[in-house]
Computed example of a mutant assay.
Amino acid sequence: MRAGRLVSLLLLLQTRGRMTARELADELEVSVRTVYRDVESLGSAGVPIYADRGPAGGYQLLDGYRTRLTGMTGDEAGTLFLAGMPGPAAELGLGSVLAAAELKLRASLPGELADRADRVRERFHLDAPGWFRGDEPTPHLSTVAEAVWSSRVLEIRYRRWKAPREVTRTLNPLGVVLKAGRWYLVATARERTTAYRVSNILEAEVLDATAVRPSGFDLAGFWQDWAARYEQSVYTATATVRMTEAALRMMAFVFPPEMSRTARDLAGPADEDGWLITTVPIESIKQGHIELLKLGDEAEVLDPPELRARFAETARGLAATYLPIASAPVPTAGSTDALISPG
Rank of each mutant, 00 (worst) to 15 (best):
T168Y: 04
I290N: 10
S260G: 05
V153H: 04
G87V: 13
A187N: 07
S260H: 01
A220H: 11
A220R: 14
R159M: 11
F222W: 12
L62Q: 15
D26F: 03
R261F: 04
R66A: 12
T321L: 14
A195I: 06
L178N: 12
A145W: 15
L6C: 01
E27Y: 06
T240I: 10
A263E: 08
E91Q: 15
G64C: 06
S215H: 06
V148F: 10
A77P: 08
N172G: 02
V148N: 07
G95N: 10
F311W: 11
L94W: 10
P305S: 13
L276W: 09
R242N: 01
L69P: 00
A117F: 06
R53C: 00
E23G: 11
V30H: 01
T240R: 15
Q287D: 15
T79P: 00
T240S: 12
T314K: 04
L276Q: 08
D271E: 02
I277E: 15
R165H: 13
T193E: 08
A3Y: 05
E191Q: 14
R213I: 15
A117K: 03
L82V: 02
R169I: 13
L6A: 01
E258N: 02
S8I: 00
Y230R: 10
L318P: 02
A45Q: 14
A3M: 05
F253G: 00
P256L: 01
G130T: 12
P269F: 00
K104G: 00
L94Q: 14
A299Y: 08
L185T: 10
R192G: 00
P86Q: 07
P139Q: 07
Y322W: 15
I49D: 01
A220P: 01
H289D: 11
S108T: 07
V186A: 01
A83D: 07
R192M: 05
L185P: 04
L141N: 02
V148P: 05
L295C: 04
M251V: 06
L307M: 10
L293F: 02
G334F: 08
L293W: 05
L302N: 01
D38S: 04
D135P: 12
A195F: 07
S327K: 13
T210F: 09
L292R: 11
A315G: 14
A83R: 14
T321S: 11
V186F: 03
E146D: 14
V47L: 04
G134K: 02
P324T: 09
A211Q: 07
I277S: 09
F222H: 10
E155N: 07
D127K: 11
V144Q: 09
G175D: 06
T138R: 12
A90K: 13
L307Q: 08
L318D: 02
G95P: 05
P48F: 09
P137K: 07
W275E: 14
L293C: 13
T314W: 12
L9R: 02
L61A: 07
L42F: 03
E272S: 15
E203Q: 15
V176G: 03
G84M: 09
R261K: 11
W161V: 14
A267M: 08
T332D: 13
G78W: 03
K179T: 07
L248M: 05
A270H: 06
R37I: 04
L266Y: 03
